[in-house]
Computed example of a mutant assay.
Amino acid sequence: MSKTLLELSGVSVSFDGFKAINSLSFQIGEPELRAIIGPNGAGKTTFMDIITGKTKPDEGHVLWGDKGISLLGMSESAIAREGIGRKFQKPTVFEAQTVRENLAMALKNPRGPFDVLFYKKTKRGAERIEEIAEQTGLTDSLTRPAGELSHGQKQWLEIGMLLAQEPRLLLVDEPAAGMTPAEREKTTEMLVEAARTRAVVVVEHDMEFVRRLNCKVTVLNEGSVLAEGSIDHVTSNPQVIEVYLGR
């Protein structure tokens, strides 16, 4: 049984009087894979912004880790150091650097001003880069500039860069967007594999992709949880059909 890693309770946030998140409660264990779906404006991005410290909620609690520490009031960088990694929709990789260099820069190392200056290649670091390249299907591309990669491969490189930081929670925003069917299949495998040892939250519109993840699904609507359970359970829920499938 996985232990709770992250718990949001009674979280609300308003922008100019509009409640983007409305008394939201959510929890995820470690390890666990979870998909989050919902119509546009359901609060999916704001939900991730709250977890990563980008947006401060008006009320509620966001508790993290074995000791249940509060993430509220912590800076974005402090939250990242706690082990929360986030991948945005558009891949942000260093295009002029090789895949290997991108992964090396992302490795979990001491991050002081002198540490970065006197970065030394270590045997363990090199092994870790090989492991991540294998996991993300980029072994044959390690010496290529990241700018030459396909859209799907750039997405994988960015997932690899997050894995290099060894996060306990990985938040991934619409990973399947713009991918070929083969790339989507590889991405599914990658996320399922990553979730064996950590918590992974995937925000996605593509229902077929979510079905292939074969995990618990949380449906957001108007800033709160509308339904939760297997993909079959939530897609047969009359309320979900009404708001999401528009039937």
Score class of each variant (00 low, 15 high):
67 K>L: 06
131 E>P: 04
70 S>K: 03
137 G>R: 08
86 R>T: 07
76 E>V: 14
74 M>T: 07
69 I>K: 01
127 E>C: 01
110 P>A: 09
138 L>P: 06
65 G>D: 05
112 G>P: 03
97 Q>K: 06
122 T>P: 06
78 A>H: 14
145 P>I: 06
74 M>K: 13
130 E>Q: 11
131 E>I: 05
86 R>D: 10
144 R>W: 10
101 E>L: 02
75 S>N: 08
100 R>T: 12
143 T>D: 15
113 P>W: 09
86 R>A: 12
134 E>K: 09
135 Q>P: 05
99 V>G: 05
121 K>D: 12
118 F>G: 02
136 T>P: 03
93 V>I: 11
86 R>N: 13
79 I>T: 07
115 D>E: 13
101 E>G: 01
79 I>L: 06
94 F>M: 03
90 K>D: 12
122 T>G: 10
101 E>P: 04
123 K>Q: 14
132 I>L: 05
85 G>W: 07
131 E>T: 07
118 F>W: 08
72 L>W: 03
87 K>R: 13
81 R>H: 12
135 Q>Y: 00
109 N>R: 14
99 V>S: 03
86 R>E: 09
124 R>M: 09
122 T>Q: 07
68 G>S: 03
146 A>W: 00
111 R>Y: 11
76 E>M: 11
68 G>N: 09
72 L>K: 04
88 F>M: 12
132 I>H: 00
113 P>V: 05
116 V>R: 11
81 R>I: 02
64 W>G: 01
134 E>R: 06
115 D>A: 14
64 W>A: 01
102 N>R: 00
101 E>D: 04
69 I>L: 02
141 S>L: 11
127 E>S: 07
78 A>T: 10
132 I>T: 04
83 G>H: 11
88 F>C: 06
72 L>H: 02
125 G>D: 09
119 Y>M: 12
112 G>L: 08
69 I>S: 02
126 A>Q: 12
93 V>A: 00
109 N>S: 13
108 K>I: 11
89 Q>E: 06
67 K>D: 14
127 E>Q: 05
140 D>T: 13
125 G>N: 05
128 R>W: 04
109 N>L: 15
136 T>K: 03
69 I>M: 08
107 L>W: 06
67 K>I: 04
112 G>N: 15
110 P>H: 11
119 Y>K: 15
82 E>L: 15
128 R>I: 01
98 T>K: 02
92 T>A: 09
78 A>Q: 09
94 F>V: 01
65 G>P: 05
145 P>C: 04
82 E>H: 11
81 R>M: 14
141 S>K: 10
93 V>C: 00
74 M>D: 06
143 T>I: 10
139 T>A: 11
142 L>E: 04
127 E>H: 01
78 A>S: 13
104 A>C: 02
133 A>F: 01
65 G>A: 07
130 E>M: 08
141 S>V: 05
76 E>P: 15
114 F>D: 04
133 A>M: 12
68 G>C: 05
89 Q>P: 08
